[in-house]
Design a protein around this nucleic acid. Structure first.
Lengths: 145, 145
DNA sequence: CTAAAACCTGACACCAATGTCAGAGGCAAC
DNA sequence: GTTGCCTCTGACATTGGTGTCAGGTTTTAG
C-alpha cells in the first residue's frame, strides 16, 4: 500500500511516517518511480511505534529497541535489555508523577467545591442533595499550594 | 530570599524561576535595586508548580489554575473547575498509555530473555538457576511488533 | 572603598515531532 | 495522451521549557 493509505489506516500523518523512516523506525520498499510501498504488517508496526511514543520514548530510543522487537538476536538483545529496563523505570516514575499530580488536582477540586458550597450556604439550598452534615468549616478552606 | 537561594532550595534553575514569573506562575517583590525577593512560602509554590509540570500541564494551564489554588473565589473557581476536570481526564488517559507501554516493554524483555535462553541451551547451563522446566519453545520466540 | 559574587535584561540556541509550502514527478482512469 | 490525485524531496516554521552568553547593575564581604 502507498503512504497515504498507511496514514489513513493508522491515523498518523504522512509527514510523520516519512519522519519515522528517516529515523530508522519504519522501512519501505520503493516503486521504480520512487514511491514508498508498505505491507500489511507495517500497520501494526506503526501502532507499535505510536504506543511507545505515547510513553514519551524518543525516536532514538525506539530505533534502538526496534531490531530487538522485530528479530531478537544476541547481537541486539544485550544492549537493548538494559535500555528497556531504564525506560521501564522512567515510565514507572512518571506514572508516580501523574498520580501525584492527579491527587493534587483532586484536592484542588475539593477546595473549590467547598468554597462554592460556603457561598451557597448564605442562601439555603433549593435541591434535595446531601447538603446536610456538611462538615466543611466556613471560611476555613485550606489552600492547595 | 533571593532567586539564587530559591533555586538552590527547590532544585529549579534560576532561568526557570524567571520564566515562571514571566508566565505569571510566580510573583516576587523587588528590592529598590530591582532584584527579586521571595518568601518562604514560595518554596512550596515552586514545588507545587513542578508537580504540575511533571504531569505535563502547560505553564498556560497552571497559570489558569494558580489563582484558584491560592485564593479560591467564585470568580475563578468556576472556569477552573472545568479545566481541572479536563486535565484530570488527560492525566488518567496518559497513565493508561504509560501502563500499556510498560506492558509492551515487559513483553519485549520476556522475548529477549527467552531468546537468550534458547541460545544458552546449546551449551548446558553451568549455574544452578531454575533453567529446568523452561517451557519456551526454541526458535518459536514470538515477535513483539 | 574595592573586589567578588550574585543578579538584571535581552537575545539567541536547542530539541523533537509535526505542520506546511513549493516545485517536480509518478500513477491510474478515461 | 491528458487530467487529476498522490507522492517525492527539501526547506523553513512552530511549540515550550530551558541553557547560555553578553554587557551592565546590585549586593555583600573584606
Amino acid at each position: 500500500m502507498r503512504i497515504g493509505e498507511l496514514a489513513a489506516r493508522t491515523g498518523v500523518s504522512v509527514r510523520s511516517l516519512r519522519y519515522y523512516e528517516q529515523q530508522g523506525l519504519l522501512a519501505s520498499i520503493r516503486t521504480p518511480g520512487g514511491q514508498r510501498q508498505y505491507v500489511e504488517r507495517d500497520v501494526e508496526r506503526v501502532h507499535f511505534i505510536q504506543g511507545l511514543y505515547a510513553a514519551n520514548l524518543s525516536s532514538r530510543t525506539i530505533a534502538e529497541l526496534m531490531p530487538c522487537a522485530e528479530s531478537p538476536s544476541e547481537h541486539n538483545s544485550d544492549a537493548a535489555l538494559e535500555r528497556m529496563a531504564r525506560e521501564r523505570e522512567r515510565i514507572t516514575e512518571q506514572i508516580g508523577d501523574l498520580l501525584r499530580a492527579r491527587d493534587t488536582l483532586d484536592r484542588m477540586v475539593v477546595v473549590a467545591r467547598a468554597h462554592r458550597e460556603s457561598l451557597l450556604d448564605a442562601a439555603p439550598a433549593a435541591d434535595g442533595s446531601a447538603a446536610a452534615q456538611d462538615s466543611t468549616p466556613h471560611s476555613a478552606v485550606p489552600a492547595c499550594v
